[in-house]
Design a protein around this nucleic acid. Structure first.
Length: 885
RNA sequence: GGGCGAUUAGCUCAGUGGGAGAGCGCUGCCUCGACACGGCAGAGGUCACUGGUUCAAGUCCAGUAUCGCCCACCA
């Protein structure tokens, strides 16, 4: 009796199997100098994070690659770890403190970072556990963290190297400032979003009238910034203002004298052609200010509140200030008009607060020298993007790259390893902490800022192998094989890994293939997001469909598309698919209790066996190639179709009768059932690791020569299975299927119970067909319930019979008294029209000289054969219609 | 303002030059010893639109429309 329940229950097997895989140590990659490794460093999830749909998709992709290559015998390793995620984690910890009525400034830097580490201890393993429950075969014994000791050394090594090379510098610039996170951000951490803004036309009185002109009008979207105005600019070629250049205006409400200057930056066609200059709060104005030596007046504090420079407006929040200033301007008659003006403004990618362009001292990386080799690496194919179109996006960004602001005014992160001597003014970047000035011996103080999280993330593919420590491990596993990730971190992370990898690892890119998977959207086309409430929790999905069901359902949805509208139905069918596999295995196990396992592969003689093995060969070839080409959706569909429509619907059904045959026949079928199921479980394992492992463990295999578990069993080698390729058997089985389908269709059409045995008469077109069908009549009798089966090349249509035609055959089914002759005649007539139309089209094509001259011979041959077949079919139908009249 | 992607059956989507497909849903029949998370049989589509290339176009090219995404320092 089978030990398997009739319905597959993922919950019962998933936990224990994870334990067994871990205990077996199968996930720890072991270097083998003679073999090419396959390894991936996981995109490290944030320590604060929980598993979302993007992770579920991305990690399934990686696990499929890892498991397939592990089975194929390559030393395989999937490096695991988490990212300290500066802003995100700091925000979480601050929120927690706030609940306790505390703020970070109250407890101080040291206590605060301690709290962050505690947070990491408490929640850092959450997402790792979730990866385990998905079945991800990461190297759990070697978990990394972007702030661990070794990683800190890597970060310092990089900083100091680039500092010494002049690639890292400090500068006073306009950067993107988030007043809520109170830190600088890099350009790519800003999300542009259209808002319904307004363009305010403001009248600035001239100090002394020029001719009839008493004022000049400027346009601005941010009236509160007038507090920082230090000039007015016009285009030098703009004749409207030529006479005013060099004169002065008076800043409303403030009274500051503003010179009218001329600069090419100004577009005379926009607004009034005159622009107020606020060098401390606008990047363009800043540059104009540099050229004209304008005063920079910073009017905001770090929280976005007007500072002392704002006079009576000091203390107002920036948005409040806008309202108050506008009211005052209106009252003073300075507002000429206000227009609706939708435009894009930047928002913080972490907290979504409006970004403030802000003048401050920050650290930058000079990117152009790093970008050049990284461009070549993709251009000459050392790094390939999948789908390929993403390389254009990469080129565009890299070609227009700007310097990277890497300093953050946070406490949680890698502190910038630069030390200042207040005594002698010295500045030192150092891999080790310094306490005394190397020049004068005075005490030093370290820079207060930390580095952008992405500064450390970019080192992931080599820092996780212990770099900067040179080691055999690093040499063996670097460069890694593939990287799979979401498109939204292409610039933040992927591009930077390529740049730093090439720079520090001797010109070797960190990976050869970058898989950019689709972004997961919900059915309404909205981004899956927890905060928007549009997300689906992968843990819930695994609860409903099992880990295998979720994984396979996701793989079915991965094609070359850019955005993926998540379909839960696919997960349902995948759960059902797992159940189908489970029950096919039950059938095999129930029928092999008396089977003696053998190690050698089968040598099939029966046509059905030759057929399924030939199909298996084709499957192995498509699955192997498909995974290697990252065509996951295609692979999933191939597996689904083979298991369900070929193995279950036909092979197993045809096997049922044969199992009751002679002992030799039964043994042969048993051998086949075990072999095909074994092979197909191997092919399925990367996508559905749990159900396949569980079943495989129960298969009657010759265990002495087998791997301990499926996770490390040998991958089916298409070049070995190629010996089973057998087109003759494939077409022979098509014939059998055609006869059976003809009988079934007739039953359904006339409502004849499956229990009523039918008499069938088959007219074939070839003697070989007659012979084959005759020799396999038992199969037909079994699946179509025929009481007698007469087959011949020459025979008369039996009286009162209906007929079905196809595949060079005519199947006649005598249905004395059961058939509505009119209905049958109408049906045949419809069939005739259909075939005639097809034939007509085909003949027109075959009469076309251009076609005959240029089309491939095989294509023409195929069409000719089809035309011939159609003519035969039409002749038969005509005969049948005549018979019925 | 630039770039990319999508538009195929009621829904979600495969299908990159020669016979329109899948899953779910729908209809009919089936409690047949693997599976009702199942079996068998069916219905359902002018492949967004216009033009072009080709002997041949869902598939290649150009344009249009609609939707979506990314990049972008014109106040």
């Amino acid at each position: 009796m089978s030990e398997l329940a009739p319905q597959f229950d993922p919950k019962q097997i998933e936990g224990p199997l994870i334990e067994r895989w871990l205990e077996g140590g199968y996930f720890c990659g072991v270097p083998d100098a003679g073999k090419t490794p396959f390894d991936i460093t996981i995109p490290p999830p944030n320590v604060t994070g929980v598993l979302h749909m993007g992770h579920a998709l991305n990690n399934t992709i990686q696990d499929v690659l890892i498991r397939k290559n592990r089975m194929a015998g390559r030393p395989t390793r999937w490096v695991l770890g988490t990212d300290h995620a500066g802003i995100a984690t700091q925000n979480k910890v601050e929120q927690k403190l706030a609940k306790e009525g505390l703020s970070r400034s109250e407890i101080g830097r040291e206590a605060f970072t301690r709290k962050c580490w505690e947070w990491r201890e408490q929640y850092g393993s959450r997402i790792v556990d979730q990866l385990k429950s998905m079945g991800c075969s990461c190297d759990y014994g070697d978990e990394w963290f972007t702030m661990n000791e070794s990683y800190q050394r890597a970060v310092r090594e990089v900083f100091v190297d680039w500092y010494d090379a002049g690639l890292i510098y400090r500068g006073r610039r306009i950067i993107n400032w988030c007043p809520r996170c109170t830190t600088a951000l890099s350009d790519i951490e800003v999300e542009h979003e259209d808002i319904a803004g307004r363009l305010h036309y403001l009248r600035y009185p001239l100090l002394t009238p020029v001719g009839e002109r008493t004022h000049i009008t400027v346009a601005t979207t941010r009236p509160e910034t007038i507090l920082g105005d230090t000039a007015i600019a016009v285009n030098p070629g703009d004749e409207r203002y030529t006479e005013l250049v060099g004169s002065f205006a008076v800043l409303p409400l403030v009274g500051r004298k503003l010179e009218l200057i001329a600069d090419d930056y100004v577009d005379p066609d926009f607004g009034t052609g005159a622009v107020k200059m606020t060098p401390a709060h606008d990047p363009n104005d800043f540059e104009v200010g540099q050229r004209h030596d304008l005063e920079q007046i910073n009017i905001l504090d770090e929280n976005g509140v007007i500072n002392d420079q704002g006079g009576k407006y000091a203390g107002l929040d920036r948005s409040e200030c806008r309202k108050v200033i506008l009211a005052d301007l209106e009252a003073g008659g300075f507002v000429e008009k206000i227009e609706e003006y939708p435009h894009a403004v930047g928002h913080c990618y972490r907290c979504h607060t409006q970004i403030e362009p802000y003048l401050s001292d920050q650290w930058f990386v000079d990117m152009k020298p790093l970008a050049a080799p990284a461009l070549s690496a993709v251009r000459d194919g050392r790094v390939k993007f999948h789908p390929e179109r993403w390389s254009n996006v990469y080129y565009h960004w890299m070609e227009n790259i700007r310097d990277w602001c890497i300093s953050r005014q946070l406490w949680w992160g890698h502190r910038i390893p630069v030390f200042y001597c207040d005594a002698c003014g010295g500045q030192f970047a150092s891999k080790d902490d310094l306490s005394a000035c190397p020049d004068c011996g005075a005490p030093l103080r370290q820079d207060e800022d930390v580095l952008d999280t992405w500064f450390s993330s970019q080192l992931w593919p080599f820092a996780t192998f212990g770099w900067p420590q040179e080691s055999a491990e690093l040499a063996y596993w670097y460069p890694t094989s593939a990287l799979s990730t979401a498109p939204d971190i292409l610039f933040l992370w992927v591009a930077r890994m390529i740049m730093s990898g090439l720079y520090f690892m001797d010109g070797q890119a960190p990976f050869s293939d970058v898989i950019i998977h689709p972004t997961v959207f919900n059915k309404e086309g909205k981004r899956m997001s927890k905060s928007l409430g549009t997300g689906v929790d992968p843990l819930d999905l695994m609860e409903s469909y099992g880990a295998d069901g979720m994984r396979f359902g996701l793989m079915l949805q991965v094609t070359g598309v850019q955005d993926l509208k998540f379909s839960e139905e696919k997960l349902l069918s995948s759960r059902n698919f797992a159940n189908k596999i489970w029950n096919a295995a039950r059938f095999v196990l129930m029928n092999t209790e008396d089977y003696q396992p053998v190690a050698s592969p089968p040598t099939p003689t029966h046509t059905v066996d030759r057929w399924i093995l030939s199909r298996l060969y084709g499957l192995s070839s498509r699955v192997t190639g498909g995974i290697d080409r990252f065509e996951f959706g295609e692979v999933a569909r191939e597996l689904y179709e083979f298991v369900w429509n070929e193995f279950c619907d036909w092979y197993i059904e045809l096997a049922k009768g044969r199992l009751q045959d002679s002992a030799a026949e039964r043994a042969a079928v048993q051998r086949m059932l075990v072999f095909v199921l074994d092979q197909v479980l191997r092919l399925l394992h990367p996508m559905m690791p749990f159900v396949t492992e569980e079943i495989w463990g129960k298969l009657p295999l010759e265990r002495a020569h087998e791997a301990e578990m499926l996770v490390v069993a040998a991958w089916p080698d298409p070049s070995v299975l190629a010996r089973y390729h057998d087109t003759e058997a494939e077409s022979a089985i098509e014939t059998i299927k055609a006869v059976i389908s003809a009988l079934r269709t007739t039953r359904a059409r006339y409502g004849i119970s499956p229990k009523t045995a039918l008499r069938a008469v088959v007219r074939t077109s070839l003697p070989e067909q007659t012979e084959f069908i005759t020799s396999r009549r038992a199969l037909i009798e079994g699946l179509a319930n025929t009481s007698s089966l007469e087959v011949a090349t020459v025979l008369d249509k039996p009286p009162s019979s209906v007929s079905v035609i196809g595949a060079g055959l005519e199947v006649f089914i005598p249905l004395e008294g059961l058939v509505d002759l009119d209905a049958e005649r109408a049906r045949l007539s419809r069939e005739q029209d259909k075939l005639a139309t097809e034939l007509e089209r085909l003949q027109r094509k075959l009469g076309n000289e251009g076609y005959l001259g240029q089309a491939a011979a095989a294509v023409i041959e195929k069409d000719r054969a089809r035309a011939e077949e159609l003519q035969e079919l039409l002749a038969k139908i005509e005969g049948q219609i005549a018979d019925l009249s």
